[in-house]
């Protein structure tokens, strides 16, 4: 494999967990809900996936279990914010704290164990193509899933009736309710989807990216995913672009460290966080862009009057 292929491959693996977590949150936010619990759901996904893979020996069962764990945790969030109309910001934070703590507790027995890596799928013939073969047709399966999910979400939101309902619920829950749409049920479903993809993102970390369990291995990726959703102005295509951009920044730091440039490693490690702040500033300066697409009911609780 050439150096250029290696770099692009690592960028893709660094970007995929961000994309997975962010595409779910995008749907959640389009439905008018702000779930700040991504970091916690990812951590739970990572540890559940790793544990299941260890117990059963199958990475795929791990992936499945990680998604279930993500959904289970997200349902706690949904119950509080939707059924009991609690403050979404605070509830999301509690999910993050709970998820990080619980994952550390569960994962205690798995620290240092050699991981089980999800196999690459190499599509025959096509993956042998020069230059692009390895890159496009020789990835791990979750990369394809993340791209399919992005395309699926974009299509659903823009072209289907379900997408229209989700957007209506997120724009104005009172109107959507008056039109007879089940606001709370739609939001429950979207939150579950967000939990599923966050769990998947966690599984990606512990079964593909670094096939191991390390405490706090999410390293703020959940928060960066949240920032990506803002950065994307709630548009899936821009979200994917943003995810790859951030994956690139992440890898840039690692490579620069490896090549021994004279910059202290801590500065390079802080690049993704710094880039997140800068990206948020850049997108916010374009007021029109962010105001047009922001779901109008974002973060507000809804109690149906009856």
């Amino acid at each position: 494999m050439t150096a250029y292929e290696t770099i692009i491959l690592t960028v893709i693996t660094a970007s995929t967990p961000l994309l997975l977590a962010a595409i779910g949150e995008l749907v959640v936010e389009r439905a008018g809900v702000l779930n700040l619990g991504i970091e916690g759901m990812m951590a739970m996904g990572a540890v559940s996936g790793f544990a299941m893979a260890q117990v059963t020996g199958s990475a795929w069962l791990g992936v499945l279990f990680a998604m279930l764990a993500g959904v289970a945790i997200s349902m706690l969030f949904a119950f509080l914010t939707q059924s009991l109309v609690t403050n979404q910001v605070a509830t999301g934070l509690s999910i993050t704290l709970l998820g990080l703590g619980l994952s550390g507790l569960i994962g205690g027995g798995f620290v240092g164990m050699p991981g089980i890596k999800l196999d690459y799928v190499a599509i025959p013939v096509l993956s042998e193509l020069p230059l692009v073969g390895k890159l496009i047709f020789g990835q791990d399966p979750l990369v394809y899933i993340s791209i399919l999910l992005t395309v699926g979400v974009a299509y659903t939101l823009k072209k289907t009736r379900i997408g229209l309902i989700i957007r209506a619920v997120g724009q104005n829950h009172h109107s959507a309710h008056a039109l007879g749409y089940p606001v709370i049920k739609v939001r429950y479903a979207c939150i579950a989807f967000g939990g599923l993809t966050s769990g998947l993102a966690g599984a990606y970390l512990s079964l593909v990216y670094t096939p191991q369990w390390i405490e706090n291995m999410t390293a703020g990726r959940g928060w960066i995913a949240l920032a990506l959703v803002v950065f994307s102005t709630w548009l899936p295509a821009r979200l994917a672009a943003g995810a790859y951009l951030f994956g690139g920044v992440w890898i840039l730091g690692l490579y620069a460290q490896g090549m021994g440039v004279g910059i202290p490693s801590q500065f390079l490690s802080s690049l993704p966080y710094l880039a997140t702040i800068i990206a948020l500033i850049v997108i916010s300066t374009n007021r029109r862009l962010s105001v047009i697409n922001t779901p109008a009911s974002l973060g507000q609780g809804f109690v149906p009057d009856r």
Binding site: L80, T86, L93, S94, L97, G101, L102, G104
Partner: peptide, 15 residues
């Protein structure tokens, strides 16, 4: 880590 779990649960239940 139980401390962190307890703390998270506590916030959850308060809300």
């Amino acid at each position: 880590k139980t401390a962190q779990v307890f703390q998270g649960m506590l916030l959850f239940f308060i809300l």
